[in-house]
Design a protein around this nucleic acid. Structure first.
Ligand code: MN
Ligand code: MN
Ligand code: MN
Ligand code: MN
Lengths: 219, 219
DNA sequence: GTTTTTAGTTTGATTAATCAAAGTGCCGTA
DNA sequence: TACGGCACTTTGATTAATCAAACTAAAAAC
């Protein structure tokens, strides 16, 4: 019933509301992350409000209704299960699956998705370490710690990569920055805004603050 | 680049041109099999001609260009490989996959499709017994013989079912009319326009001429 | 407290796909 | 050869999604 466009908007708004976590998501973020002009976003929000997917306050932002949150969550589930399938079953590289899933998520039915979930063995995390919501719309929280806000000199496990960009993912893979790997921050240089890392059985290398913040860890 | 709509039109025109096999496909058939009004079909044909997918002769019909045939064939390949995946890998019923594949065929990329082909072991036929075109666009012809034009009293093998309707497919499955099964026409009643069939290890039953024509056989 | 900047809104236009309904060409039968 | 009917085409309108550019409100800067 909802178009692919509506599905994309709601998924996007839900994801923004989850990390920027205020109740209202501003137009700018939405327009920016979907690559449309601000005017398009404004117009769209009014239409989405008319169909009760969200509430819109002029010059404030939008808040999803529970109907809207439900659909947004369903899209995240579809996206992440599909990514898992593309990597685990078909053997694609984790840097090339995001855009594929971005299309397939609108074409796969509930029935096929649930079969796929069973076929994959009910995976809990996608290839980037992102939690897969349950069928009922429950999602685990991401760890708070990352390679920047972490205490130095402690071996931690990489849990999740927050950047979907294929260039960054290729780089991360080459360096071994992938979920499950153990890593230690051995130095931190405020002037150069970079941290020096040591991965098991690898040589040291350094990462800028901005990138370090995108690697979530636990332990 | 081509929209899902364009992809659907070209696949449809190619399929019509393959079985009605004249060089020109008339508007009526196209409009009818896509469920649009004749006016919509006419308008669309002009747009498709503008983009060199086909040539259109007013009140005659259309003929695909090689560019158009290539895309149409690609869509048939996608559709049938996806159907095969849905049945063989995910275990869906052959009566419920057509509509699913109808959507997925527009969302799957060339890259993912070729991986899927390898994963499935390069299947030659889809679950309904329809030949899957090669990557290069070559397709095997369907058998000419069916349960209506066949000589009586000869055991033949079912090759293909020409009806995608879920009701007919459910019925065919229940009766055992599926590719690979052996069947014999034991009687033919012109008055009742029906044929009586005997499948291996099954009780006899009869089928109307119209339905009998939709079951292709060989041997 | 003005002014400037930035973020967001409005307006008018465009494109793809569709329909209903009015109009037209052509083919077969009389 | 004229007529009627069917298949097809044209026209005018609608819907969803988008943009550019003019406009406006609210927050920062001065
Ligand atoms: Mn998407
Ligand atoms: Mn992911
Ligand atoms: Mn389709
Ligand atoms: Mn099929």
């Amino acid at each position: 019933m909802p178009s692919a466009t509506v599905e994309n908007y709601l998924k996007c708004i839900l994801m923004l509301s989850m990390d920027c976590d205020q109740s209202e998501v501003p137009m700018g973020l939405i327009a920016n992350s979907l690559g449309v002009t601000p005017g398009t976003a404004t117009t769209m929000m009014k239409n989405l409000q008319r169909e009760k997917w969200l509430t819109y306050k002029s010059r404030k932002g939008v808040t999803l209704t529970s109907k809207g949150r439900r659909l947004g969550m369903k899209m995240i589930r579809r996206h992440r299960l599909l990514e898992t399938f593309l990597v685990d079953t078909l053997g694609l590289d984790w840097s090339e699956i995001h855009d594929e899933a971005e299309e397939l998520e609108h074409a796969i039915s509930e029935k096929v998705l649930e079969r796929l979930d069973v076929f994959l063995g009910n995976p809990q995390y996608d290839p980037h370490g992102h939690p897969i919501p349950t069928k009922g719309g429950v999602i685990r929280k991401l760890p708070q710690k990352n390679l920047l806000n972490l205490a130095m000199g402690k071996k931690v496990k990489i849990e999740s990569i927050l950047d979907q960009g294929s260039d960054f993912l290729k780089f991360a893979q080459k360096k071994g920055l992938m979920p499950g790997k153990l890593v230690e921050v051995i130095q931190r240089d405020e002037m150069a805004d970079s941290v020096e890392l040591q991965l098991e059985k690898k040589s040291k290398f350094s990462l800028g603050f901005k990138s370090a913040e995108k690697i979530l860890v636990s332990g």
